[in-house]
């Protein structure tokens, strides 16, 4: 392809590159600020710096309220990841069948949570809990998170399942395997990456969810986002919050990089296996 047919000239590429760099600064500036002030020896995040300290980290790691919040969030997030992935697998297997009753309606229903604003989901579940006569609870919150997670799990698992079908059907025919054996021996291992992605997404979505949690959290209990929200209103607690935030930032960036590296490895291996 000659360079003149490229959609970007040299000047265009340079200026868009500059724009990209600016956006990266914009996107990372708040993260840098959080990390910088988490080491600042003052309760007010303002210039000039007052001195270096790691005491906020120590305080954060010894705060029972915070640890309880993280524990509750982790529990809800894990429950959500497993339940939503299970439902996602069922939905994907169902949708990949040739005949599905009311397919358009069912498909629409499965992605509906994506287009219903979170505040409506929260309010609806609040009314539902009132109708069945039970108050807010951690279980109800997990159930609510499953609602908003199912579309994501379906969108992750279903496409993967479709790419498998062609090869699978051949294999199944050649081997004369029945469907259950075929699923267990062939589909399941090949589905593993999609299921792992689905679990990760389910965990992350729930762990970071505030809107629905704010409606369904039982009195006196807090998930991690609720802890952050409440903490943002107490200035004395803010430095500790910045320390927690720095840890979260470090951890999530690490996970993103690890996931990317892992994905790259996996794909290269697949390619190598395919070639061999």
């Amino acid at each position: 392809m000659s360079s003149a047919t490229e959609p970007l000239g040299r000047a265009g590429r340079a200026s868009l590159g500059g724009y990209y760099a600016l956006l990266v600064v914009f996107l990372y500036a708040p993260l840098v600020v959080i990390v910088a002030f988490s080491f600042d020896d003052s309760t007010i995040a303002a210039l000039p710096f007052s001195g270096f300290t790691t005491r906020w980290y120590r305080a954060a790691l010894h705060d029972p309220t915070l640890l309880d919040a993280v524990r509750l969030s982790a529990l809800i997030a894990a429950t959500n990841a497993v339940a939503a992935t299970a439902l996602g697998v069922l939905a994907s297997l169902g949708l990949s069948a040739r005949r599905v009753l009311l397919r358009p309606a069912v498909t629409a229903l499965l992605v509906l949570p994506l287009v219903v604003p979170a505040v409506v989901v929260g309010v609806g579940l609040l009314i539902l809990l009132d109708e069945v006569g039970s108050g807010p609870s951690a279980g109800a919150l997990a159930a609510g998170h499953v609602v908003i997670t199912v579309p994501y799990t379906v969108l992750i698992i279903l496409p993967r399942l479709r790419t498998l079908e062609a090869s699978l059907t051949e294999a199944a025919r050649d081997l004369g395997a029945n469907q259950v054996v075929a699923f267990w021996a062939i589909t399941r291992p090949l589905m593993t990456p999609a299921i792992v992605s689905s679990l990760i997404v389910g965990f992350t979505l729930s762990f970071d969810e505030y809107a629905i949690a704010s409606f369904l959290i039982p009195p006196g209990e807090r998930t991690f986002p609720i802890f952050i929200y409440e903490g943002s209103k107490v200035p004395q607690q803010r430095p500790e919050l910045l320390a927690v935030a720095s840890l979260v930032i470090a951890l999530s960036l690490l996970l993103v990089v690890a996931a990317e590296v892992g994905r790259g490895r996996y794909e290269r291996r697949q390619v190598a296996a395919g070639a061999g």
Binding site: L129, P219, E230
Partner: peptide, 22 residues
């Protein structure tokens, strides 16, 4: 001891009317 933010009187009254228990 577990504390929940009282918020203000109107807010807490409404919360308890909606089923929260303290």
């Amino acid at each position: 001891l577990t504390y929940a933010d009282y918020g203000n009187d109107d807010k807490n009254l409404n919360k308890m009317r909606a089923g929260e228990r303290f």
